[in-house]
Write a protein that binds this DNA or RNA. Sequence first.
DNA 1: CTGAAAGCGCTAACAG
DNA 2: CTGTTAGCGCTTTCAG
Lengths: 326, 326
Amino acid sequence: MRPTMKDVASAAGVALKTVSRVVNGEPGVHPATAERVRAAIERLGYSRNESARVLRRGRTATIGLVIEDVADPFYSGLSRAVEDVVIEHGCLLLSGSSGEEPGRERELVETFCARRVDGLIVVPAGDDHTYLRPELEAGTPVVFADRPPGAGLDVDTVLADNAGGARQAVRHLMAHGHRRIAFLGDDPAIFTAAERLRGYRDELGELYDERLVAMRAPSAEAVHADLERMFALDEPPTALFTGNGRYTVTTLRALERRRVALVGFDDFELADLLDPGVTVVAQEPAWMGRVAAELLFRRLGGDTGHSEHVELPVRLIVRGSGELPP
Amino acid sequence: MRPTMKDVASAAGVALKTVSRVVNGEPGVHPATAERVRAAIERLGYSRNESARVLRRGRTATIGLVIEDVADPFYSGLSRAVEDVVIEHGCLLLSGSSGEEPGRERELVETFCARRVDGLIVVPAGDDHTYLRPELEAGTPVVFADRPPGAGLDVDTVLADNAGGARQAVRHLMAHGHRRIAFLGDDPAIFTAAERLRGYRDELGELYDERLVAMRAPSAEAVHADLERMFALDEPPTALFTGNGRYTVTTLRALERRRVALVGFDDFELADLLDPGVTVVAQEPAWMGRVAAELLFRRLGGDTGHSEHVELPVRLIVRGSGELPP
DNA sequence: CTGAAAGCGCTAACAG
DNA sequence: CTGTTAGCGCTTTCAG
């Protein structure tokens, strides 16, 4: 089996505690003794068992991250930023993808909690988070990112200005002469989709027409069908506003080479290389991840103030598709 | 503090061990007793402390994954697949990005090992992995993915057919009449880059001209400069072969709207929407991740056969850019 | 069917 | 400067 501190201790002819001191760089060990211990460690190939340490100290130095899907560029960008902050703080990251399934989200969170992660960053899939109550009461800080928790939970949140971004997109298209602007977005059960719809609707005001709205999961078939339906209207849309990165891409594919004005929510790689370049309302996933992680570590550092609600601005990037005339 | 098994035991008026039996679904507990225990668990909000369990049982039910960068679509696709397999096996995934730095790779691996992960999947950044020796001797299975370990380490590997893919790309361009085919790739210190160069060179044979080869990190400036240099030659290239996804994108950007035949290694989203569509040699990161993870779990299941070396095929996807005439 | 005791490998508290 | 002791919360072993 693997050598333990006890083995190192007898190999070096010292007490267990002395080895512990050397391993943890605690002061008060004679240099010569320390050297003997280090030699024994080297010789036996000893490495501290963190599990035992965790059990004794009560902190795992581990953060849990639940996102929707690591393979989605938005979330992988967020993950990487979280990871960087976590490492800076000498911790490790346990992460999992919920796949937009509330049950999976809950399982992941509960498994992370059973492992006693020191803190949790969650992009929720569901809208009932009462199951987190005991964990919060036990003192585990939790930060929700991208989407808020279900009702009745008072935790820190880091969200983007979804409604404001949607307003900006619509305003931009209207400034370029459009009056018939369609919105293609995800199921409004998803917070961000609902918020973007709200912004779209608010900005359009009188011009709002529900026939120009389609909200469901962005399959190629769904998007194709929705576009066909809208373009067959008496007054078809002259511009499109797509509700997220995946929607934008699916829509561009469905449009084939038809040139229709388009603004998408979320930036994506190569948006600039398409013809025309795709005008987008860009979020910064890495920024969101970093802010959420830093907030979490502030809580871990002892900040027990009121829950904070950060709203990250978004910005319009003009590239051509949003400036096409009606 | 949090309730422990002991607390549950006294609340239910049974012994510690009985609670343990109920929590673990072990047989041999009277239904009525079990019910009392479950009620106490519910009432106290008890959840088992996995750290203590791990310490006692010696298995963490955790797999470590070291990749280059989660934010890179290739690795995030691989990650997601690994994660799925890991979850299927009731385990959790600890992951980290090396950022192509050997030191960071080693730190991550060692930290994972100190946490006693049950197994490790590594996309190495460095080429010396002797530091893994003690871990391997302790019986921790390790699978290398995408790139092999440094000399002297006999472990399982899952690699793509890099050289074959490069040969395929070159053959395709030659079949379309090209004789001056440039190669833009990463630093050949990176295994995949070196292998692709090898395939490119082999296939070109007599036509190989080192002036048409540029290998370094794909910054916009570097690629721009390399292209300028090559296009200024007496016999400039009529086609380009780019060594990975990031290189392809950087090169497309540097080319602006110049139409040059191009085949890229790695597929990427929107390759089909560009004009012309980008012909690529595609790998399947999710497949690689799944194969690596399944191999790892076979080892964890007790398979102690010789180390395996899986080579995953790649496939050419024809979209237009690779079929442009000289 | 139930329980008491030992101990996983480490750190905290306190002596020497 | 060094060592001893107790115990983190659980599972394992063995005894009722």
